[in-house]
Design a protein around this nucleic acid. Structure first.
Length: 569
RNA sequence: CGGGGCGUGGCGCAGCCUGGCUAGCGCACCUGCUUUGGGAGUAGGGGGUCGGAGGUUCGAAUCCUCUCGCCCCGACCA
């Protein structure tokens, strides 16, 4: 490809609305342009990268006998009604009507469609297991799209679905899928972790995420510094150490005035106590009504764990307005003693004594609160976030570390959730009808590319891992109007393509500095500088983007060495 | 959805508070000449309903009202 003919609109300055480095660099390198919030056009350089990622995914999916399909992005409402998600999915599902007033949605995911295909076409246990996958455009009308292609509303996703007759078969595929995922992300040159995860709205009970470590990531993952336990923080278990302290004298309940002291900080400062003495009461709105969650004052409540403990369909933090309406109190003085809500407590709470809580009266807190004596708790469980330095839940000496990351892949076992609601049944060897067991597996294609930039860049621009670089090499003629340089550059270009190296020829009449800047911004792994000086000595210069190292090689004899230089990167 | 910010040639911005000639600057773009081993110099040139609508005024990018869009901070997800 000749640079002068390609649409590579590079920018010297970052667009003002880009926040994270991958977004800035993708725009600057002319890979993407924004159309609307969370909706992007992918330009030639960007598409080349996405196609590389897709190809790697395809190869690994095919290796585990995945079969590629292409499902409709526009899906009828009836199908979603069958699974129950038409009502459940909320505003994130983009809905619209056709000319006949029939309701449709733009697919945010494809469980319904694939389950429909399989229930129609797969009837016998002999046809199972089967893995089907596609690489498709999804649309999720996110509350807050951001960070460019990393969290768009429209995005490309590889989604795979597997169908089984037994749990064992499901787990087998799950594990081959997880190793395929590991290979994919390794091949994309990413530093990632596979972590335990909550299965979210899709449901199921066995789930892992593939998280690329990056400070700009929106996810927090916790992992043990001594064993291999790693988990999304929203799921990460906490271990509660049993206290050996002799039970202290149990105080009686006492009211203390705490005028205008609402936050944990204010109260602890005012009463001169550690936040560990406080019990935090947080009210959530759920499909089962308002509930209160209790954690120690220095802890963060984890809504996902709470949701699982309550076993409710949905849960959101209650608005102050709603709280006031229900309890007659402003936030800040709520307490678990004699409150008229169902109470769910973290497992640390029963170990506390002589605690301090809100009193459900304005300006007053209670001291001497005892779990057994004073609280009427519905259920106790793990509902707090794990913290850095917490003991590992899996091993003894281990301590928890927390890092930020970008979720690029997610695998989970769905079980019979969709096959039961949508009647996807097969006949077993005895001729008995049974629901199919399912698994589902996703990879964000664009997000993977963005994550690769987050991990591989410097102040000059992107440093693509060669496997997903838009081009592997770029020829930079020092002066393209010099005949010797011109013809040498063309010869190198031709030879490299013949050797299977995807090469870009910068045939623009720009000065060398400009070409360097663009090559660096674009992140092409190998630069080949062709100039009259070196050419006079029968040499050309090759330079690595990664570390700026350069060497002279003989021209034309050593052009054939270039593929092996690339493969060592 | 709540809170904050911003909309001025393709990109980055100034001008707005305190209304006043033809709306500026840098980069990019086009033409000529020179230049060509790290974002060239020079001389010309093209391109803007100042997000939109309404209002105030002799006069609006500037003031007022409404509206649309985008970005950032919090609950969701590949």
């Amino acid at each position: 490809m000749r640079y002068s003919k390609l649409l590579i609109p590079t920018l010297k300055e970052s667009p003002a609305d880009a926040e994270v480095i991958s977004h800035k660099l993708m725009v600057r390198a002319g890979m993407i342009r924004q159309m609307a919030a969370g909706i992007y056009s992918i330009l030639p350089m960007g598409l080349r990268v996405l196609r590389k990622v897709e190809q790697i995914i395809r190869e690994e999916m095919n290796k585990i006998e995945g079969q590629e399909v292409f499902l409709p992005s526009i899906q009828p409402a009836e199908l979603w009604a069958e699974s129950g998600r038409w009502d459940f999915y909320g505003k994130e599902l983009l809905r619209f009507k056709d000319r006949n007033n029939r309701e449709f949605c733009y697919g945010p995911t494809h469980e319904e469609v694939i389950t429909d295909i399989v229930r129609r076409e797969v009837k016998s246990y002999r046809q199972l297991p089967i893995i089907l996958y596609q690489i498709q455009t999804k649309f999720r009308d996110e509350v807050r799209p951001r960070f460019g292609i990393m969290r768009g509303r429209e995005f490309t996703m590889k989604d795979a679905y597997s169908f089984h007759t037994t749990e064992e078969s499901t787990h087998e595929t799950y594990s081959s899928m997880s190793s395929a995922y590991s290979k994919i992300f390794k091949r994309c040159g990413l530093d990632f972790k596979m972590v335990e995860a909550d299965s979210g709205t899709i449901g199921g009970n066995f789930s892992h995420e593939f998280v690329v470590l990056a400070n700009s990531g929106e996810d927090c993952i916790g992992f043990c510094d001594s064993c291999d336990y790693a988990s999304n923080l929203e799921k990460a278990a906490t271990k509660t150490l049993s206290t050996n302290i002799k039970s202290p004298l149990l105080e009686e309940l006492k009211e203390v005035t705490t005028p205008n002291k609402k936050s944990i900080e204010q109260v602890t400062q005012f009463l001169q106590v550690s936040p560990k003495k406080l019990i935090k009461t947080i009210v959530f709105e759920t499909d089962q009504g308002l509930v209160a969650g209790l954690v120690r004052g220095d802890r963060q409540i984890n809504p996902i764990k709470l949701k699982n403990l309550i076993d409710c369909e949905w849960l959101i933090p209650a608005s102050e307005e709603l709280i006031t309406k229900t309890t007659g109190l402003p936030c800040g003085y709520l307490g678990p003693v004699e409150i008229k809500l169902k109470i769910f407590a973290d497992k640390e709470i029963p170990l506390m004594s002589n605690s301090i809580t809100g009193s459900n009266k304005v300006g007053i807190h209670l001291t001497g609160v005892q779990f057994k004596r004073d609280l009427n708790v519905e259920k106790v469980g793990d509902i707090r976030n794990a913290n850095e330095g917490d003991p590992c839940p899996k091993c003894d000496p281990g301590k928890f570390k927390i890092k930020r990351g970008i979720e690029v892949g997610h695998i989970f076992i769905l079980g019979k959730k969709y096959s039961e609601s949508m009647q996807a049944l097969y006949l077993d060897a005895q001729g008995k009808e049974k629901p199919i067991i399912m698994g589902c597996y996703g990879i964000g294609v664009g997000r993977t590319a963005a994550a690769a930039i987050e991990q591989n860049h410097d102040e000059k621009g992107i440093i693509w891992p060669p496997s997903i670089a838009p081009f592997q090499a770029i020829i930079l003629p020092v002066n393209f109007s010099d005949d010797a340089v011109n013809s040498a550059a063309k010869e190198i270009y031709k030879s490299l393509w013949e050797l299977g190296v995807e090469t870009l020829l910068d045939d623009r009449s720009e000065r060398l500095g400009v070409k360097f800047k663009d090559a660096e911004l674009l992140g092409i792994p190998l630069q080949i500088v062709v100039g009259p000086k070196n050419l006079g000595e029968g040499k050309i210069e090759i330079k690595l983007r990664k570390n700026n190292e350069s060497q002279l090689i003989l021209f034309p004899e050593e052009i054939s060495h270039i593929p092996s230089i690339l493969s060592k990167l």
